[in-house]
Computed example of a mutant assay.
Amino acid sequence: MVLGRATRLLAGAMTLACLVLIGPSTPSGAHFAASPPVEPVRDVVPNRVMTWNICNPCGDENNVGRAAEIATYAPQVIGMQEACVRDVERIRDYLEQLHGLVYHVEYGSVLRNRSRCGGWPWSPGGFGQAILSAAPMTDRVSVEYPDGGSENRGYMAVTTLVGGRPVRVFNTHLAQRQQEEIRAGQVGVLAKAVARHDRAIVLGDFNAMPDAPELTRMWARAKDADPQCRPSPAGTGVCEPTTDWQLKFDYVFLRNIDSRDQGVHPSPYSDHHPVHADVDLT
Rank of each mutant, 00 (worst) to 15 (best):
K223P: 07
P166V: 14
A208F: 00
D224F: 08
P233M: 01
R217H: 10
W245E: 15
L247W: 02
L111H: 12
M156I: 08
I257G: 00
G164E: 14
V252F: 12
V44S: 06
H272I: 06
T236F: 00
A71R: 04
H173Q: 04
L3T: 12
Y269V: 05
Y103N: 11
P75I: 09
E39I: 07
G23H: 07
S109E: 07
P227G: 11
G100M: 09
D211Y: 08
G108P: 05
D198I: 14
P241V: 03
W245R: 12
C58S: 06
G126V: 08
D147Y: 10
L21Q: 08
R66T: 00
V2Q: 08
W245Q: 14
V38Q: 15
E214S: 01
V141W: 06
A30Q: 10
V141A: 05
A17M: 10
I91G: 08
V238L: 09
G125R: 01
A71C: 13
R114H: 07
N113Q: 13
L111Q: 13
G29D: 04
V194Q: 02
Q179G: 02
F32Q: 07
G23V: 02
P121F: 05
V143H: 09
A68I: 01
W122S: 11
M137N: 13
P40G: 14
D198Q: 15
N63C: 02
A11Y: 02
N53T: 01
D205R: 06
A193N: 11
A277H: 00
G59S: 07
S133Q: 03
T282S: 12
V110G: 03
H265K: 05
R5H: 05
R8M: 13
L21I: 09
S28L: 10
A234S: 04
Q81I: 01
A277V: 07
R196L: 15
N53C: 03
L174W: 06
D258K: 04
M1Q: 09
T236E: 05
Y73N: 03
D60Y: 13
P40K: 14
A222M: 12
E181M: 09
G118H: 03
P75A: 11
I201D: 09
N171D: 03
N256I: 14
H99L: 13
V110W: 05
Y107Q: 11
G65Y: 03
R90T: 01
G148V: 02
T236P: 09
Q186L: 10
R112D: 11
K192T: 09
P27N: 15
R177H: 12
L254M: 15
A234C: 06
I78G: 13
L3N: 12
R199H: 00
V158M: 03
V102K: 03
